[in-house]
Computed example of a mutant assay.
Amino acid sequence: MENVWDYPRPPALEPITKPIRIEFAGRIIAATEGALRVLETSHPPVYYLPRAAFTGCTLEPAPGRSFCEWKGEANYWSIWVGNRVAERAAWSYPDPTPAFAAIRDHLAVYAGAMDRCLVDDEAVTPQPGGFYGGWITRDLKGPFKGEPGTMCW
């Protein structure tokens, strides 16, 4: 069992070899055994998949940007499969800070915008709230940032 309160701040970046799969609009849109995950105090892990793993969809730039003090400026992406779209469902860091250079050319996806996101064949639960993009698996212990009353953590 991993306790998210044991994760560091600033966050850690680590490779993960467990299979990661994302399903949307009735198809597998991304799959890899070469993802990276960001571990930050109070947050479930955020999984970054290589852009090349997204073979079952079209990615289109979406409006807006955000800034992370650790990773830099993020761009957003909409995910299309046929005529179904998940607006601003993914994000990336085209020019990340040196500590997070490995996530260049990777995308993270909001699990709640997809049909299913899986880690090692386990369907994840999206991190609570509308901003954070962590994936909760049964081996994680919270409470998690994003739940009611956690905005000032």
Rank of each mutant, 00 (worst) to 15 (best):
E14A: 13
M1E: 13
D95P: 13
H43D: 10
T58S: 15
R51S: 11
E40W: 03
P148H: 05
W5P: 11
L59Q: 01
D105W: 12
A108T: 00
A102P: 02
A108N: 04
L118M: 11
Y132H: 11
E2R: 11
W5D: 13
P143A: 03
A62T: 09
S66G: 08
H106W: 00
G142A: 04
C117H: 02
P44A: 08
C57V: 01
S92Q: 10
V109G: 02
A25E: 11
R51D: 06
A30F: 01
E2T: 15
P11N: 12
I16D: 13
L107I: 01
E147M: 05
P50I: 00
S92T: 04
S66E: 09
C152M: 15
E33G: 15
E122T: 03
Y7N: 15
G112F: 07
H43K: 04
S78Q: 09
E73S: 12
G112Q: 01
P8K: 06
E122C: 06
V85S: 12
A111L: 00
V4D: 05
A89G: 08
F24A: 04
R104H: 11
D6P: 10
T32Q: 04
K145W: 10
A52K: 00
A86H: 00
A113I: 10
Y47Q: 00
N83Q: 13
K145T: 14
P50T: 01
D6L: 14
L107M: 03
T58F: 14
D121N: 10
R21Y: 12
A99I: 10
T137A: 08
E69H: 12
W135L: 00
C68Y: 11
D115Q: 07
A108C: 06
G26F: 01
I136D: 05
T137R: 01
A113K: 12
A31H: 08
W5Q: 14
W70N: 08
N75E: 15
G64C: 07
I136G: 02
R104C: 06
S92E: 09
A86Y: 04
A74C: 11
L36H: 03
Y93E: 04
M151W: 13
L36S: 00
R21A: 13
W77I: 05
P8R: 08
Y110D: 02
I20D: 00
A74N: 09
D115M: 03
T55N: 10
W91F: 15
D139C: 02
T137K: 02
E23H: 12
V124P: 00
L140S: 04
D105H: 11
